[in-house]
Amino acid sequence: MKASTINRQARFLVAPGALLLVLLMAGALVADYASLGNLQNIGSQAVILALLALGQMLVMLVRGFDISVGAVAACSSTVAALTMDWLGTPSIALAVVVGLLFGGLNGLLIAYLRVQPIVATLCSMIAAQGLARLISDDGQPVVPIDASALTDLAFQNVAGIPLLLAPALVCMLLVGLILKKFTLGRHLFMVGCDPQAASLVGVDSRRVTCIAYLACGALAGLAGAVLFCKTGTGLPTEGVSWALQSVAAAVIGGTALRGGTASVWPVFFGVLLIQALETALNIEGVSPFIAEIVMGLIILVAGGLDRLILRLFSSSTAYGES
C-alpha cells in the first residue's frame, strides 16, 4: 500500500479508537454512564460543536483557520432571538444568513484580499462580538416572548435519536457527499494540497477558498440557530471557547494542519470524543478547571499525533510546512 494511503487511514482511525476507549473506560468507571439517556444527552450536546467542527474542517482543508466561529454562532443566536417575536420560526433562517455574511467577509478578506486567516477571522470575531453586544443590551441574554415552538421541537426524540442531531447529521451527509462526489469537493482537496498547482490546471482557487469560508460561516450560523432552539434565548457572549474546541475536534478527526486531507466522519467522532470526555468528567464531579486542562492537553496531543503520523508515514518532515 502506498505510504500516503496508510498515512490517511492512520490519521482517520485515531478519533474512533480514542472514542471507543473513552466510552469503555467511562462506562466501566462512571455510574450510569452507559445508559441510553446519557448517550442521548451526549449526542444532543454535541450538535453545536459538530456543526462548528465541520466548518472548521472545511477551512482547514484549504489551509485556513477560523477563530470567529464561536462569536458568529453567538451573534446569530442573538439575531434569531431578537427577530423571533415578529418573524416567528423563520427567524432561525436569519441566523444562518448572519453566519453567511460573516463567512463571506472572511472569504473576501482571505481569498481575494490575501489577508492572513488568523488576522481576518480575528477581525470578524471582534466584529461579531461587538455586533452581538450592540444589538442586545450590552451582552445581556435576549429572551423572546414566546420561543416554545422551537424549544419543544428541540427536545423531541425520533426513534431514540434526539431530533436536535438532525441538522448536524444532514449537514455532515451533505458535506460528505460534496467532498466525495462533486467537482467542488475535488477542487477543495486540490486547493488544499497545492493552491498554485490547482490554479495551473484551471481551478479558481480563490473562489474555492471563498466558498469554504462561506460554508464555515453558514454552519456557524446554523450552530447559533441550534443554540437558540436549545435554550430559547439569544446568548450574545456565549461561545468563547468554541473555536478552540472546534479546532481540537477537527485535528483529532484527522484533518491535516497543512491542508489537503480531511474526512467528515472522523471529525464527528472527534466531536463525540470531546463531548463524551466532558460528560464523564462532569458526572464524576471533577472540577471544571481540570476539565479545561484536559481539553488543552487534548489539543496538544492532537497536534503531536498529527506530527507523529506525518513523520511515521511520509518522507517530508521539514519544519514550517504545517
Binding site: 478552540l244 481539553m295 488543552g296 489539543i299 496538544l300 497536534g303
Partner: peptide, 23 residues
C-alpha cells in the same frame, strides 16, 4: 524542537494555563 504548529500549541496552552490558574 517537537515541530508542533505554533497556533495549536499556544491554543492548547491557553486552556491548560487558564485551568491551572483557576485551579
Amino acid at each position: 524542537y517537537l515541530k508542533l504548529p505554533a497556533f495549536l500549541v499556544t491554543l492548547g496552552m491557553l486552556l491548560v494555563l487558564h485551568g491551572l490558574a483557576s485551579l
